[in-house]
């Protein structure tokens, strides 16, 4: 049985798809988004970090491993603990990361095992992967949470380190296959919230038709800054402003008007 490199399994995840879910975080990602909320997911290798705790006025520093190679069986044991919550809430399992499609064999086995347990599956993906990887897991994924970072080729490369060509091709393939898709758009002020960005997003949504069931706007926040310093040595998004609630609401309403699909704020 193959093993997957994971860096967290989070129970009672309520922002990663319908119902109450357990989110499995894969370690390793081809993108390097400046604003990434999970920079510990970048490298596909076990890393070390220092954990600081205080007790009785003393500070304790301990080295901790980030990332662990785990078998499908072991992960399923952890997922199964919350089956009753998933069944009751119409929830299930979400594969996130990192980029789960970087480990397609393990992902396929894990997703197939979930389906075998009658659990709903979501794949939270950047879409940056070979189409063969996507095809491999496609039969076992009920809902794709598909990230759209920027539709501007140049900007996408500048802020994530990679072109968006593969991402858009895979999205079109999923649409053709009539997959269930929710687009997830991290809103980064000054980077992907300009007039032309919104226009491009509206065009994409019109083109997508009924396959895209909704859009989630994810407001950028700076809570991950300390993790960037740990795992990356720098925080490239330091100068970016956190979007204002009113601006988010304007964009939300605007997209909703143009597309006929529900647009929400937050995952």
């Amino acid at each position: 049985m193959s093993k997957g490199l994971l860096f967290d399994i989070k129970r009672f995840a309520v922002h990663d798809g319908p119902g109450i879910r357990t989110t499995v975080f894969f370690k390793g990602c081809p993108l390097r988004c400046a604003w990434c909320h999970n920079p510990e997911s970048y490298r596909k290798q076990v890393e070390k970090t220092v954990n600081t705790r205080k007790l009785n006025g003393r500070t304790y520093r301990e080295e901790e491993k980030v990332g662990e190679w785990m078998t499908v069986e072991r992960v399923m044991g952890m997922i199964g603990k919350d089956a009753v919550f998933m069944n009751e809430s119409g929830g299930g399992v979400t594969f996130s990361g990192g980029e789960p499609l970087m480990q397609p064999v393990f992902l396929e086995e894990l997703a197939r095992a979930c389906v075998g347990e009658s659990l709903h599956t979501c794949l939270d993906t950047s879409g940056y992967a070979g189409n063969d990887a996507l095809q491999r897991v496609f039969p076992y994924i009920d809902l794709f949470l598909y990230d759209i970072k920027s539709l501007d080729k140049e900007r996408h490369r500048r802020y994530t380190g990679k072109s968006n060509r593969l991402i858009l091709e895979n999205l079109r393939w999923l649409i053709k296959m009539r997959a269930n898709i929710r687009l997830r758009v991290p809103l980064i002020p000054g980077i992907n919230d300009r007039e032309e960005d919104l226009k491009a997003l509206e065009d994409l949504l019109s083109e997508a038709g009924s396959s895209v069931q909704g859009v989630d706007l994810l407001p950028y926040h700076k809570l991950a800054a300390p993790k960037h310093k740990t795992f990356r040595g720098e925080y490239a998004a330091g100068n970016i402003q956190v979007p204002e609630g009113s601006a988010m609401e304007y964009i939300r309403q605007r997209l909703e008007k143009h597309t006929n699909v529900p647009v929400g704020v937050g995952g």
Binding site: F12, V14, G19, I20, V84, F85, E88, S89, G90, G91
Partner: peptide, 16 residues
């Protein structure tokens, strides 16, 4: 949505 999820959490506890 959050109210629904908390409702499910309670229903799950009661199922147990």
């Amino acid at each position: 949505e959050a109210i629904r999820k908390l409702g499910s959490l309670i229903r799950s506890y009661f199922r147990l």
